[in-house]
Each structure stands twice: as structure tokens, then as C-alpha cells.
Design a protein around this nucleic acid. Structure first.
Length: 303
DNA sequence: AATGCAGCCAACCGCTCATAC
DNA sequence: GGTATGAGCGGTTGGCTGCAT
């Protein structure tokens, strides 16, 4: 084990750098339809000139429906700091304690804000607890809240609702695109290669997305035809809502959020005895038991 | 208005881990 | 048990953006 390995794919002729809106759409559309059983094969099947790794990263860090965008709350920052004390640079583990946040995001926040904040605090500037964080830690200028959620500073954010709402967005794309955000996005310009934030924003907001999708790869046309057939043959296919729920369940499974929404709905997180025991031995769970027991829907799968 | 600089974030790279054969 | 492969993780970096001069 652990011998390292050859690159996940021949990188010749593959795109690198920022993802375009079209690439995002392809990826989302493909995963929405087929899931991501095999990352390595996915780009080819989806008609993407990317390596599987890149697709995975893009999905996990940006396109996943349950990504919580926006500023980190004070609570989240504190959680990160405390967990970092316990775990060190185990970003994925820390991320697993912060629903909707990715390891990459947390790592960035740590490196850019929290580390500095801690350093300055350690220097004895404790008395000057400047709300500098609010500006720095969030980098609000570039942190696009592309889903146009009002930021809830409440860490007990309704994760289930968030999941469902976000998850439904792509479905809208296929059917009736809606403007999720009532604010009316003035910046509806498509920036072809930018910053993914823009791509995503456009993807979500622009009502013309369906047209854009129609112009995508051949497989999508085939898929459309197949879908039509399926629609005739399957009652279930006509149940958009049912499909949505299935997809949500699938996504939750895939993303390890299994049962999160149910649990949230029930207002309690029931774990079996084994898990409980495991958690008790775990510094992270100890932390949460002490500090945040009822706050976050934990999905601690610490190895 | 132009330029330089610093901050920030998305994406890449290289490695390890997990698992199937 | 050894090997091949897929997936995941953490560190690093490229480039965009905003601010200061």
C-alpha cells in the first residue's frame, strides 16, 4: 500500500485551470443522471476534457448541492480553531464536523484568517478582539453567495432544507428554471472561464440555462431521447418530485450525509451504541459533546 | 488613470489509504 | 501476500480581485 501511483489519467489534451460554465453544467448534469460511481471514467462519459480527479474536486468543493456558501460564522470559526487544536491539519475531519463546508474551504480560511487571528491573539492582543474577522474571515468581496441565501449566522442552519433546496436547483434547470433569488441578479453576465463562482451563479440564475444545456454534448441528446422513452414507460419518471427525493437520497448517501435530513427533521441524532462508543473515545466527539452537542448534524466518520 | 502589491480562493500535484482481484 | 486501481487528503500555487499609492 501507499506506493504512490501514476497520474490518474494521461493529462495530455486535458483542460486545466478554472472550470467553465459549460464544464460545470456537464458535470452536474451527468452526476445528476448517473451519479459518480467511477470518477476516472466519469469525464469521458460526461464528455469532459478533465481528469477524474479534477471532476471529483470540482464536484466536492464547489458543485455539490449541499455546499454551504458564504461567510464563516463566528461559531464555525471557533469550531475550526478548537478542532484544529485537537486534530491538527486534518481538514477533512474538521470539515466533516461542519456541514456544507469543504476541507479545501476550511483549509483556506485557516491559512488566510484563523492562523493570523490566533497568532495575533497569542501575542497578547486578546484585549483587542477586533471584529476584523467579520471582514477578513469572510472575504465577503469575493465570496459569492451564489445560492442567494440570506446568510444565517445560526449554526443550527437547517441543513436538510438547504440540501433539498439546493438539490432541486439543477432539476429546475431541466424543467422550469426559476430565479431562486428574489433580489434579481444584476450581474447576469456570463464569464466564460472564470472563477467558478461566476459560473455557478450564472448556472443557477440564468433562465437560459436550458438552452445552453441543449447545446451540450451528444450524449445529452441521447439522454434526452432516452429520457423521453423512459418517460413513456415509467410512471415514476413522471413524478418529478419523486425523482427529486430519490436523487436527494442518492446524493446524501453518496456524500455521506445519509439520514442527515431525516435526523434534522426529527430534531435528534440517534446513533447506535457502537458509534456512540467510538465517538466517546474520539477527541472530536468529546469536543462536540462538550460544546456543541445539539448544534451540528455530525457525521463523524473518523478513522 | 495606471501601476504595484497583498489577500484570497479555486485548482493542481503528489502522496497515502482502501479495496478488489 | 502482492499488485493494480480508485479515491481521498493535505500542501502548494496560479491567477483573479480589490486596495493603496
Amino acid at each position: 500500500m501507499g506506493r504512490g501511483r501514476a497520474p490518474c489519467c494521461a493529462k495530455v489534451g486535458l483542460n486545466k485551470g478554472s472550470w467553465t460554465q459549460e464544464e460545470d453544467l456537464r458535470l452536474i448534469a451527468y452526476i445528476q443522471k448517473h451519479g459518480h460511481g467511477n470518477w476516472r471514467a466519469l469525464p469521458k462519459l460526461a464528455g469532459l476534457l478533465r481528469c477524474g480527479k479534477s471532476c471529483r474536486l470540482r464536484w466536492i468543493n464547489y458543485l455539490r448541492p449541499d455546499i454551504k456558501r458564504g461567510n464563516f460564522t463566528k461559531e464555525e470559526e471557533d469550531t475550526i480553531i478548537n478542532l484544529h487544536k485537537l486534530l491538527g491539519n486534518k481538514w477533512s475531519k474538521i470539515a466533516s464536523c461542519l456541514p456544507g463546508r469543504t476541507d479545501n474551504e476550511i483549509k483556506n480560511v485557516w491559512n488566510t484568517h484563523l492562523k493570523k487571528r490566533l497568532t495575533s491573539e497569542e501575542r497578547g492582543s486578546m484585549s483587542v478582539d477586533k471584529p476584523d474577522d467579520s471582514q477578513s474571515s469572510s472575504s465577503s468581496s469575493t465570496y459569492l453567495s451564489c445560492y442567494a441565501h440570506e446568510e444565517k449566522d445560526d449554526p443550527s442552519l437547517d441543513f436538510a432544507d438547504l440540501s433539498i433546496e439546493m438539490f432541486e436547483l439543477p432539476m429546475d434547470i431541466w424543467g422550469s428554471p426559476q430565479q431562486k433569488d428574489g433580489t434579481g441578479d444584476e450581474s447576469s453576465k456570463v464569464s466564460p472561464c472564470s472563477s467558478s463562482s461566476d459560473a455557478m451563479k450564472d448556472f443557477l440564475v440564468t433562465p437560459d440555462t436550458v438552452i445552453q444545456l441543449e447545446s451540450l454534448s451528444p450524449w445529452m441528446e441521447e439522454e434526452a431521447a432516452m429520457a423521453e422513452l423512459t418517460q413513456r414507460n415509467s410512471v415514476e419518471a413522471e413524478e418529478g418530485e419523486g425523482k427529486s427525493l430519490e436523487w436527494l437520497e442518492y446524493l446524501e448517501k453518496e456524500l455521506g450525509l445519509c439520514g442527515a435530513s431525516e435526523e434534522m427533521n426529527q430534531g435528534s441524532f440517534v446513533r447506535d451504541a457502537a458509534e456512540q462508543t467510538e465517538m466517546e473515545e474520539d477527541p472530536v466527539s468529546s469536543y462536540f459533546q462538550q460544546e456543541l452537542t445539539s448544534t451540528y448534524p455530525l457525521d463523524l466518520r473518523l478513522s
